[in-house]
Simulated assay, not measured.
Amino acid sequence: MDRKLESVKIEGKDVALLSEFHVRFACMEHFDEELDDYVNDFEAAPDTHQAELLEDESLDKRCRACGAPAKIALLKEKGL
C-alpha cells in the first residue's frame, strides 16, 4: 500500500526509483485523492503506471484509501 523501494520491474524492465519517495497504489475511485496526498506529502508529482504492470509480487497492490484492488501505481522514477 505504501512502501519505499530502490527499483521495481515494470513490463520486464528494471526501473530505478528515488528511494525517498514511496510507491503507493490507488483504485480509480480514490486516484485523485491519492494523487493530491502524494504531492502534498512529497512536494513532487509522481510518475504513474498501471498497477498490474509492476511485477514485484511482494507489493501489496491495494488502494491505500479503501483496500480495493489498485488500478494505478504512484512512484517516482530516477532520471525523469
Rank of each mutant, 00 (worst) to 15 (best):
L53R: 12
D32R: 10
I10N: 01
D36G: 04
V8S: 05
E11R: 08
K9P: 02
E43I: 09
D32T: 03
L18K: 14
L18S: 10
A44L: 07
L53Q: 08
V15L: 08
A44W: 02
L17I: 00
E57P: 12
P46Q: 01
P46D: 00
D32P: 05
P46V: 09
S7V: 02
E55W: 08
R3L: 14
Y38G: 12
D47N: 15
D36I: 05
L5M: 12
D56P: 00
E57G: 13
A16V: 01
R24S: 02
Y38H: 11
L35A: 11
K9T: 13
K13S: 04
D37V: 04
E11K: 08
A45L: 11
E29M: 07
E6F: 13
S7K: 14
L35D: 05
T48K: 03
A44N: 09
V23D: 04
E52S: 14
F25L: 06
A44T: 09
A45P: 00
V8N: 00
G12C: 09
D41I: 03
K4P: 01
L5Y: 07
M28A: 14
H22I: 10
F25R: 02
A44V: 13
E52C: 06
E55Q: 15
Y38R: 04
E20F: 13
I10E: 06
D36Q: 14
D47V: 08
L5N: 03
V39D: 00
F31M: 13
A51Q: 07
E33S: 10
K13V: 12
L5T: 02
R24N: 11
E52P: 00
L53D: 14
G12I: 02
D37S: 08
P46H: 01
L18Q: 10
R3V: 15
F42C: 11
E29T: 14
E29R: 08
V15N: 01
G12V: 04
S7A: 15
H22N: 11
K13A: 12
F25W: 11
E29G: 06
E33T: 14
T48H: 01
K4R: 15
D56E: 15
Y38W: 11
D36T: 13
K13H: 07
D36P: 00
Y38S: 05
D32F: 00
K4M: 11
D41M: 04
H49L: 10
N40W: 14
H30F: 14
D37F: 09
F21E: 12
F21H: 12
M28D: 15
G12E: 04
E34K: 03
E33Q: 15
D41P: 00
E34L: 06
I10F: 11
R24T: 10
A45V: 14
I10A: 03
G12F: 02
D47T: 09
F21D: 01
V39Q: 09
H22D: 13
D37T: 04
C27L: 13
L53Y: 06
G12A: 02
D36K: 15
E11Q: 03
